[in-house]
Design a protein around this nucleic acid. Structure first.
Lengths: 165, 165
DNA sequence: CTTGGAAAGTCAACAAGGCTGACATAAACT
DNA sequence: AGTTTATGTCAGCCTTGTTGACTTTCCAAG
């Protein structure tokens, strides 16, 4: 029954139900580790993961609009707005009325917003750097390949819309 | 500045800040895809991700105790208890008083609990299977290696406590 | 120039699922 | 007998998600 996915038994052992379940658990446990360090930092400031996500994507695309952020984050505008409002009130994010289209708001990190972004991403990158080093470049390439294949097509577009070679 | 992490410029390009940020986004977008299918199924039954996690780990270790589940899931007993109570009331999970230690409760999936577990894990495995196939066995190996390196040591123990070769 | 619709913001209400703290019970251990 | 452990439960709080209704601003087409 372990070979239900591989009746011929030749080389598809990485697709057995057991291997797939194991992959699912790997995602679950790894994601916990992935968010653990930023979560601890956010708590100091009274923020949550939602604030982190907003800050991250504003840094990635300075001047991005609320609508664009909504598409990336996949939440409702009311939910995002609540988070954004506190960040603006606290002076971490600046919302400028659009130049071309004045209905739009262009979002930027302020100096202190940039500082928090850096604190958060430093911690997260440290964790990833250690994992990447331990696993090695080939493993990292595979990691990226599998994760990309796991994304919804629409999100995959957003993922590929950025820089890194 | 792209090479701040690789002053020598020789072969550590996968550790640049840009690559690490990209890896972080990969985790974020992929996790969204990873949970999307089960989330849709859970909604049909009025459950959430918390129920899925409980069901998953009870199936993985039938007869597991509440305490063990708490350690794996990393939530408070009040939070887990709320989820567990609904699953027991709905007849998806059975809670038997421990044989050796009568303070403990041993948790099992009932027939209908097993059915829901199967529906959830089927959807999740289908997504993973497609991703694994697209990426190939070597990529999958790297995927697993990086994710394992990303876990907190304590969770890594739980991860390695199970079966799959 | 008016009107239709898109972009954004706001208010209210609600739910899931985290959390803390306090307390109850039963069983096991010392 | 007294303490510790495992579990359950009540009450209350927070974050972050949801829906629905409504307003304001403003672009663009008729």
């Amino acid at each position: 029954m372990a070979d239900a996915q591989d009746p011929a038994g030749q080389g598809l052992l990485f697709l057995t139900d057991e291997q797939l379940r194991k992959g699912a658990e790997a995602m679950f446990f790894a994601y916990r580790g992935f968010t653990a360090d930023p979560d601890r930092i956010l708590e100091k400031y009274g923020y949550g993961r939602a604030h982190h996500r907003a800050i991250h994507f504003i840094r990635r695309s300075p001047g991005t609009t609320v609508n664009n952020l909504l598409a990336i984050l996949g939440v409702t505008k009311q939910s995002l707005n609540r988070v954004l409002r506190t960040l603006i009130e606290d002076g971490l994010v600046e919302s400028r009325i659009g130049a071309r289209d004045k209905r739009e708001r262009n979002l930027f990190l302020t100096e202190s917003g940039t500082a928090l972004e850096h604190e958060l991403s430093s911690a997260q990158r440290a964790r990833l750097r250690a994992a990447f080093l331990e696993a090695g470049p080939d493993a990292v390439s595979g990691f990226r390949k599998v994760l990309e294949a796991m994304m919804d097509p629409e999100l995959r577009r957003h993922y590929n819309r950025t820089g890194g070679t």
